[in-house]
Amino acid sequence: MVIEDPKTNKLIEVEKLPDGTYKVTIYDKKTGEKKTITMSKKDLEKLLKAL
């Protein structure tokens, strides 16, 4: 799943891993910076609600 946040000009890509956690990659379209973090479903839901 890919989500675009027009306010921050970032793309957020979410991928479910076999162990039940989620790999979240955040791309900054302005700088080209890429950050990848792994989080639980509960933390991911908090992140998505904040957008």
Rank of each mutant, 00 (worst) to 15 (best):
M1P: 09
M1W: 02
M1V: 11
M1C: 15
V2F: 00
V2C: 09
V2A: 03
I3Q: 03
I3H: 06
E4Y: 05
D5C: 08
P6M: 05
P6K: 05
P6G: 13
P6E: 11
P6V: 09
P6C: 13
P6A: 04
K7A: 14
K7Y: 15
K7T: 14
K7G: 15
K7L: 14
T8F: 04
T8E: 11
T8L: 06
T8N: 13
T8Q: 11
N9D: 14
N9M: 05
N9E: 09
K10G: 09
K10N: 15
K10T: 15
K10R: 12
L11H: 08
L11F: 03
L11Y: 05
I12N: 02
I12E: 09
E13C: 10
E13I: 05
E13L: 05
V14D: 00
V14P: 01
V14Q: 01
V14E: 00
E15D: 14
E15S: 05
E15L: 05
E15W: 11
K16P: 14
K16G: 13
K16T: 15
L17M: 13
L17C: 04
L17D: 04
P18I: 13
D19L: 10
D19F: 06
D19R: 03
G20A: 13
G20Q: 14
G20W: 03
G20R: 04
G20C: 15
T21N: 07
T21K: 03
T21S: 14
T21F: 05
T21V: 10
T21L: 11
Y22M: 04
Y22L: 06
K23A: 11
V24C: 03
T25W: 07
T25V: 10
I26P: 00
I26S: 12
I26T: 07
Y27I: 15
Y27F: 09
Y27N: 05
Y27A: 09
D28H: 01
D28P: 01
D28V: 01
D28E: 06
K30W: 14
G32V: 00
E33F: 08
E33T: 07
E33H: 14
E33R: 05
E33L: 11
E33Y: 04
E33C: 11
E33D: 09
E33M: 03
K34G: 14
K34N: 07
K34W: 15
K34Y: 10
K34I: 12
K35W: 04
T36S: 08
T36N: 04
T36I: 15
T36E: 08
T36L: 08
T36D: 11
I37T: 12
I37C: 08
I37D: 12
T38K: 08
M39P: 03
M39L: 09
M39E: 01
M39C: 09
M39Q: 05
S40W: 02
S40H: 12
S40V: 14
K41W: 08
K41T: 12
K41C: 15
K41P: 04
K41S: 10
K42W: 10
K42F: 14
K42S: 12
D43R: 03
D43G: 06
D43F: 02
L44Y: 09
L44F: 14
L44H: 01
L44G: 03
E45T: 04
E45Q: 03
E45I: 07
E45P: 00
E45L: 02
E45C: 03
E45R: 02
K46C: 15
L47T: 04
L47W: 13
L48R: 01
L48G: 00
L48E: 03
L48V: 04
L48C: 06
K49N: 15
A50F: 06
A50H: 10
L51I: 03
L51S: 07
L51N: 07
L51F: 08
